[in-house]
Write a protein that binds this DNA or RNA. Sequence first.
DNA 1: TTGTATGCGTTATCAG
DNA 2: CTGATAACGCATACAA
Lengths: 330, 330
Amino acid sequence: MRKPTIQDVARRAGVGVGTVSRVLNNHTAVKGATRETVLKAIADLDYTPNPHARRIAGGKSYTISVLLPVVTTEFYVRLLDGLETAFQEARYDVAIFPLLDRSRLERYLGSHTLAYQADGLVMATYNLTALLSERRVRAQQPTVLVDAFATNVDCAYMDNVTGGRLAGEYAATLPGELYAIWVETELDQLFTTRVFEERRSGFLGALGAAGRTLRAEFTASFDALAARNAAVTLLDGAQLPCTVFASADLLAGALLDEARLRGLTPGQDVRVIGFDDQPWAAARGLTTLHQPVEQMGYEAAHLLLSRLGGFRGPPRARRFEPRLIVRDTA
Amino acid sequence: MRKPTIQDVARRAGVGVGTVSRVLNNHTAVKGATRETVLKAIADLDYTPNPHARRIAGGKSYTISVLLPVVTTEFYVRLLDGLETAFQEARYDVAIFPLLDRSRLERYLGSHTLAYQADGLVMATYNLTALLSERRVRAQQPTVLVDAFATNVDCAYMDNVTGGRLAGEYAATLPGELYAIWVETELDQLFTTRVFEERRSGFLGALGAAGRTLRAEFTASFDALAARNAAVTLLDGAQLPCTVFASADLLAGALLDEARLRGLTPGQDVRVIGFDDQPWAAARGLTTLHQPVEQMGYEAAHLLLSRLGGFRGPPRARRFEPRLIVRDTA
DNA sequence: TTGTATGCGTTATCAG
DNA sequence: CTGATAACGCATACAA
């Protein structure tokens, strides 16, 4: 059985297709009674408009493309949650285009694949300023950056400098030596994220302002093994009691493990401040920085929606701040 | 500047739109020379066909929807890689629709959103047999299940029973006591995955066949903290030397950590067999089961493509087997 | 307030 | 082998 079309609905409701289209799109100018009739016909037939036809006729497909790095991290799940919630409320569908690698990015941007045919585009995390200024993206459809900052398009970003500063200000009040573990950034220019540099600069700035210095810094790539190695190295040479700022909860968790193995008491011998507030952080009593990731996604979606609604103003930037959550470990 | 249409191409090439459409779709009946002219015009204009118009006119949009659980796991990255590769080779676009929670699933299946309007549908992991038999999915468009088994639609699945059996057969040859750590399954019926039950049944079956038994079993949810707790509990009561089958590398990694902290030598005092072959497994010398995930995705894509190509046969099931990789830890 | 006609970009049909 | 032209399902300008 064929899917019902707007024609079927019109026929059944005894009205013209124009009227059906109007109630579909809330074009106010429809009498209450006929509106009801149409709505009933729609319900009876279980009719849903064909988005392809909509797109081709009206220029809108009610679809948003999200270019998302496929990083197996809680962060992106939460970001997606915020984005999806907002778009769903506005009755937009969102399709994810996973950026598995650089070649995929090129393909999505270069060719005019489906990603490119949506009403709007959300790009997450990458530093695409160069591409944007070449207007390989700009010209085509409304775009918003999320978890990234730019001056030439709307964006919603996390202020990691402030996050680092909050950690630094708090750490400066604690007794004993100060240490830090940073996450190494990646190599590829395009795929580089500067969040860790930013956390570092905020942290060091706060320490400086408080007249304190780091006794030593360590570095680890973002994986469990490297995290553990860094924890071992740090504790082997650490002067206790001490405070450690681990710029990601993954690092903090490994440090907690290692401390426990050495019979050290977190929050006493070793104070630990993490960053991310992972789901397990509360259970382990980890003092850390919570990021309003969902809100950032939600707001990014609304920036885009306002553009789709016709907003024409200059690029807007929305800043989000991490929040220090003090628990047992520091 | 407007996107070029098939009209623009036709005009520039000095041919009719019908001819352009023919070269676009490889409708053979085009003379070599005109074909070249058209191709050149397409390249000059950087023309790409509008999938929406394609869909509405010819019933095909060359777009595939993938319904994917948003789980922060290497597994899905690899799966996506396999799927994307195959579809790209066939010149299909793929859009991912993230299944953040059950309500989203309902929405994608129930309403006729874009996800539902693609030429084909790939559903990953969930046990959708019920939904499928209600033909809430079946009727609409060609569908393939990946990382899930069903008899009423095409599917490509991982044989976790065999994986467990391979682990069991190998473990049975090792000296000392035998232990295992399993992953707890989730609560929601629909979102439940049976992979861990399957690994368990395969493992226990192999042990039974070899006349050996487990001295104790442990359970952990799928997170770092639970993994560590399980490792601690196990080693606290373990009789050494022993062999432990950890039904996920995450668990195996935690066990390795804990063993090291206690000064035990993996592969000697404690033999460890993991499951997944995570990226770090080789570096840590973890004996584990490797799953051909990319191949599974690739094959699933081809099952769907054959349907799109007109294949009408009965549902096909493709089985994939994990492979035991013996390294240092066991 | 509502119906009708036209156009959107493409494929398919049918002459030529 | 190729060029018109009619659909496809919908939105919208225009007329009533």
